[in-house]
Design a binder for these strands. Structure first.
Lengths: 193, 193
DNA sequence: CGAACTTATTGATTCAAATCAATGAATAGT
DNA sequence: ACTATTCATTGATTTGAATCAATAAGTTCG
């Protein structure tokens, strides 16, 4: 099991001695998903925090037959229905592989155990929660206060890789508009530019 | 300085021995604000986490001459521009007293110090961040997926106190609609009910 | 290769809520 | 008590994006 990416990820938040890593390492589980397979569905209580070792996941609400994409998670990102994981309540999200994926999981009980056993893991948990808070705040402010056009421009700039890997109607969903609207935005930008 | 409410608040998240409390207690600062005074303005780096001992605060964006209320914080709630506090970057929020307020503050450096010095404080920080994450998620899902009418109904049910204490145009702003729209929603509900 | 399906584009129409405008009710200040 | 101001309501109009509809371009796979 290739865990060097995971370790690097953790070490961006906290220092980890070899001894501490040795306590962490045996707890990870590897999961491979094919394109279209789901990690998590609406109604499930999210059982694990998940690190994307390889591939691309999408995370979405499904309401009245329509997908509303909340996030894409690619290599070296953390991906879970975090609210459900924390609250131990059935979640509202689906999480699905958009490509062949290699995931590294840590289940809820193990996480709780590690908070007690591994020095610094509590801090890691705090920093992760804080990080995710700031991420969700940024996204929400964008949806509330920026125009679809601005959101598209920023997305193109920040995630040019996803622009290639993800069909346009999913980008539209992520940006909070219909595919038709995004098509028109792109047309407008081509003319203007 | 009346800190029993603060202690109770902390103890909802973690156990605190008298010794630990003795380490915490001297670090709190009390701040009184009159109606209309601001705790925090756009562009400020949020310096403190703030507990509302008494009174009512509003937290809002101010864009194109208009207020967009993000949250109300009343007695026994935590109130800050948390993103700015965490990122150490200028914030986008204003936080202002809607009534005479009594606030209890803990500044950034002290918080960091306490993470190291007080057993369990790291855990408290994690639980707070997690709690705030779930709160923001709930609000955002409401704004994205519920109708203004549903949001108003839930708000009336969950915060009947605020319905009394806060003018209707501020409720409208919090619910993400104009005052005119909220007035019409209320009318509709009166007729239907 | 060509059929079947998926995705993207373009145009016409609809819709929910914002904006604009006016009036009435309530509240505050002198 | 009376004026000024703020707040809530109601009606008319506008608007940005969704929906509906049709076509074109691209992909997949038998």
């Amino acid at each position: 099991m290739q865990l060097n990416q995971v370790r690097q990820f953790y070490e961006k938040f906290i220092p980890l001695s070899n001894e501490e890593w040795a306590l962490l390492e045996p707890n990870f589980r590897m999961l491979r998903l094919s394109k279209g397979e789901k990690l998590h569905s609406e109604g499930d209580i999210c059982s694990d925090v998940t690190f994307v070792n390889k591939g691309l996941m999408k995370c979405y609400h499904f309401i009245d037959g329509k997908e509303y994409i909340e996030a894409f998670f690619s290599q070296n990102e953390y991906c879970s229905d975090y609210s459900s994981f924390l609250l131990r309540e059935p979640g509202k999200l689906f999480i699905e592989a958009l490509e062949e994926c290699e995931l590294v999981l840590l289940d809820y009980n193990t996480v709780q155990m590690l908070y007690d056993k591994v020095k610094n893991f509590q801090k890691f948990g705090r920093l992760m929660a804080e990080f995710l808070f700031t991420q969700i705040s940024i996204r929400n402010n964008a949806l509330l206060f920026e125009t679809p056009e601005t959101r598209y421009k920023k997305f193109s700039k920040n995630r040019p890789d996803l622009l290639q890997r993800v069909p346009q109607y999913m980008i539209a969903s992520y940006l909070g508009v219909t595919p038709e609207a995004l098509s028109r935005i792109r047309k407008r930008l081509l003319i203007t530019t």
